[in-house]
């Protein structure tokens, strides 16, 4: 439906380049947002907390995300990594794997004396987002409520943002040929639901957070725990906060 409307819109633009025509065809987009008009962007600043000690590597989040967002197989808006950091003298060479992004969890892989744990990953919804910085046309952007989103009807597919993301969170959608990534389930959280990955996480390892809400448990989480973001030296303003993140995690 959307694609057909887009096609008609584009055709109309090419045929009659008049502002009136453009305004006419633009109208449905803004009229399309029914109930969501209640949602006030100014009142939210989305983030996520992740407790590494609770993650069991079941892959429910990966499957849940794929179900909710029709993520093409082989590409990942969220995934889980397994770190196995050996003891001295090999502590600098952790063994890391993420078979099929942990879509089917992890097969047992014993490693003696290794520090082993799972690390869930997803877009960090950076406040100083390097991917947004490089987008040549404004097809990916930071929203007033603190998300980094992609306008699928405007993206060129130049892939510069994929190069600029230090975390490997972006991919080119094989059918749409535009860039795609985690939206923090914007279509859910703007309706008062939590993200799909948070909804289906059986251990509560992930928690959606709204930093602008003074009652949100995130404030206690950040205050009471040693917390780290991924690659802090990149100064991306990442907003996915990890508790008990090991030094070896990249």
């Amino acid at each position: 439906m959307t694609t057909r409307r887009e096609a008609i819109k584009t055709a109309a633009r090419l045929l009659v380049l008049t502002p009136a025509a453009v305004a006419y065809f633009e109208r449905p987009t803004s009229a399309d947002a029914p109930a969501e008009s209640k949602y006030d962007m100014a009142k939210h600043w989305w983030a996520m907390s992740i407790d590494i000690e609770k993650c069991i590597g079941c892959g429910n989040c990966v499957r849940g995300c794929a179900n909710e967002n029709a993520v093409p197989r082989g590409y990942f808006r969220t995934w889980v990594e397994r770190y196995q950091a050996p003891a001295y003298p090999d502590e600098d060479h952790p063994e890391v794997d993420s078979p099929d992004g942990a879509f089917n969890g992890f097969p047992e892989k014993k490693k003696d004396n290794a520090k082993s744990f799972f690390v869930p990953k997803l877009c960090n919804q950076c406040a100083h987002s390097p991917c947004v910085q490089v987008c040549p046309v404004g097809a990916t952007f930071e929203t007033p409520d603190g998300l980094v989103l992609v306008d699928q009807t405007y993206c060129l597919g130049c892939r510069y943002c994929v190069q600029a993301c230090p975390y490997g969170c972006r991919y080119i959608h094989p059918e749409k040929q535009t860039v795609d990534k985690c939206t923090f389930c914007y279509h859910r959280i703007s309706k008062g639901l939590v993200t799909a990955c948070v909804e289906v996480c059986p251990t509560g390892a992930r928690t959606l957070a709204d930093l602008k809400d003074p009652k949100d448990p995130i404030h206690a989480f950040l205050r009471d725990n040693p917390v780290q973001v991924l690659k802090p030296h990149m100064a991306t303003g990442a907003k996915v906060y990890y508790k008990s993140l090991d030094e070896s995690v990249r």
Binding site: Y75, W79, E81, V96, D97, K121, G168, R170, Y171
Partner: peptide
């Protein structure tokens, strides 16, 4: 190990 989305070269 590569991040799963990195396997495919972009450019």
């Amino acid at each position: 190990f590569m991040y799963p989305n990195e396997v495919e070269l972009q450019w």
